[in-house]
Write a protein that binds this DNA or RNA. Sequence first.
DNA 1: TGTTTGCTCTACTATGTATAGAACAAATGT
DNA 2: ACATTTGTTCTATACATAGTAGAGCAAACA
Lengths: 129, 129
Amino acid sequence: MFIEIESNSDVPIYLQLAQQLMEGIVRGELKPGDSLPSVRAFASDLGMNMHTVNKAYHYLEEKELIQIVAKSGVIIQPNGVPKASEEKKQKLEAQLRPFVTEGLVLKLSEEELVVIVRKLVQKIEEGNE
Amino acid sequence: MFIEIESNSDVPIYLQLAQQLMEGIVRGELKPGDSLPSVRAFASDLGMNMHTVNKAYHYLEEKELIQIVAKSGVIIQPNGVPKASEEKKQKLEAQLRPFVTEGLVLKLSEEELVVIVRKLVQKIEEGNE
DNA sequence: TGTTTGCTCTACTATGTATAGAACAAATGT
DNA sequence: ACATTTGTTCTATACATAGTAGAGCAAACA
């Protein structure tokens, strides 16, 4: 599991970390039950602060993707991630809306937008870029 | 053109405003050459600060969707919006990536994600919700 | 000529991000 | 049993963004 953080990005580094861990889960590099590094060890590895890793972990815990066991460690959700509820799908749709709007205003067609999504799915599942 | 701002949203209100104006452009409610309200009048209408409207306008100007003519007013890009360059498409793809990841980690299939995007295109073009 | 326009300036508050160091109590490893 | 490691909690600092507020400017407009 290779983590790359862009310190110049406008995306907070705790979110970059969380997102890359999510991609690891999608790819199966991180399997249910796998343990993640301690906040101190991970922070040291990545050259960031303990609290920043902690924030990423809690972000993933809120999404029920990992389990944080106090004074013990952090593991990937052992039972696997349940499929998105209708509510979560709607939240995702709402979050997606501004970007679809941006595409449309830049004269991209529905098909072009679909192609972008399909390409992204491939990239994420294969671990490209 | 109806604008609705959610003050409880985690999306900054200047962005909410800019996004809804973009949807207006997509729908053709705002046509090239149309003028937008002055920052003061709009702010008064929407119950927000002049500077917040100003920020939304400059956000849209950076995207070349409107033209701000100092001491005169603001108009929708008169020549229409040029189609997205390859660079802009890639930027959009990068912005979309975390949300596609989120969908995949919640066990949504590629097809389900595509359906969400198609639904969104319809909603935005028809002005639903 | 008086009003409206976007622009600029300072100012203040609130929130989020990131880092830093310290201490705590429970789980873990030996 | 003991020392280490664990996530948690606390205080602190620094910086950026968001939002509001009020004032003044010079040019465009009617």
